[in-house]
Design a binder for these strands. Sequence first.
DNA 1: CTATCTTTGTGCACGCGTTCACAAAGACAT
DNA 2: ATGTCTTTGTGAACGCGTGCACAAAGATAG
Lengths: 267, 267
Amino acid sequence: MATGRTHRPATRSRGIPEATVARLPLYLRALTALSERSVPTVSSEELAAAAGVNSAKLRKDFSYLGSYGTRGVGYDVEYLVYQISRELGLTQDWPVVIVGIGNLGAALANYGGFASRGFRVAALIDADPAMAGKPVAGIPVQHTDELEKIIQDEGVSIGVIATPAGAAQQVCERLVAAGVTSILNFAPTVLSVPDGVDVRKVDLSIELQILAFHEQRKAGELAAAGTVVPAVAARQESAAVRRGTAVGQESVADQGPDGDVPAVMPT
Amino acid sequence: MATGRTHRPATRSRGIPEATVARLPLYLRALTALSERSVPTVSSEELAAAAGVNSAKLRKDFSYLGSYGTRGVGYDVEYLVYQISRELGLTQDWPVVIVGIGNLGAALANYGGFASRGFRVAALIDADPAMAGKPVAGIPVQHTDELEKIIQDEGVSIGVIATPAGAAQQVCERLVAAGVTSILNFAPTVLSVPDGVDVRKVDLSIELQILAFHEQRKAGELAAAGTVVPAVAARQESAAVRRGTAVGQESVADQGPDGDVPAVMPT
DNA sequence: CTATCTTTGTGCACGCGTTCACAAAGACAT
DNA sequence: ATGTCTTTGTGAACGCGTGCACAAAGATAG
């Protein structure tokens, strides 16, 4: 998904592979659901299905955390929930600041995902003086001038950037200077940060472009092999025709040197 | 980043590696910026810096598209913009439907990134009858009953799911049955789809949890090696202390079997 | 206590992606 | 026309991640 990953050195942190870390939240979600249904134990096969991964992969992932399963039985749900939460650092409180309270920033502030799992919205920050004091999701928006003070007072180490692309790098630098060491970036820009600071990027435009690539490929392929097509392909073909696209050859509608600019701008 | 990636078979599509496809939008963005500044050519070194990647990787990526560079000079910006756009299928129109117009769905509808690059919001769909007809981002919201008709009439092949987790799988099935073959999923659920359908997932909660993992690791490491710490680490340490966290050993505040549920819920 | 059956944990091999390092290609100057 | 200098394009080595397949572990039944 989206957005993908990012440009972290990906130095295997404490022996746990980066790919495994990225899947732990997935397992945790599936396990939490089981926990609510009071399921006591679960096999790697069942849990893998619920998380949408291969069971061998899941077992190998868990092996990095230690041996928490019982052969012939499976894994203890509650225990595993606790171990993964601890490994991810979710047993402690993580204050988070959101910078840039436009459409996206407001949506994030209202997002239930922040409240759960130990993440707490410590502050909402926007550069527009007119926004100051206005409550969003029950939290009053504060002006950018307060940024440094808030971060230090609340001990914030995680920042979310939801500003326009043009402001992102500057905001990033102020966050880092004030003590933030992890950033979730929604602005469509490459952020440069000093060593020791983690950046993860979420970019809707990029996700859509990747999907478009695969769509185009699907359309082209099935036109080339006009043979026995599955139902999905058949529908896709008719859709392409409806769209007025020459299936199998790119619609080289020379739209000129595509003049649209900063691609995407949250807010 | 967030966005993470997803669970696609990742079968190298037409010879272009999946990892390369994921970077093409990045290059395109950097190139578009250069194009606006009327820069005629750019070297792999410069462009790589702008896109935040290694120059060797960039050259190899471009080599999959063909040989569009000139040795001793670099790449022609305009030409490359065109070639990448074409490769990604951005020279054609992609109608998109957004299902679930809550906070997040509304933010997506307003998102500039949809409008640019050939993506057009063909319809906004919500299950709440009270929403029907209400304009969001200038587009009237339509009821879920219309979903199939809209998709077929407009020839939509890309759908965006921004519903609560509980509704996502059902919405997904309806989208696929109506002809959608690419889905961008914001709901915190594993979607199961038939072969031939691409799913990409964006999960804010997962991104935050991955950041938390690295934060915790950083805090633990620097406590272990109380030696010469860079400025960033020093700030992090004091932040951890401020937060009341025992640096170097997990705060085993047994919060019980963490009762919070569906982790995250957009809307 | 022994046998059987289930399920974990992992050794091994394979493939993709990244990076290095350099030869080939072409621009540009003389 | 020849030489120099820059930058591309890619062969080759390496490392991470994935998946297979199976031995070891333990539960359970007899």
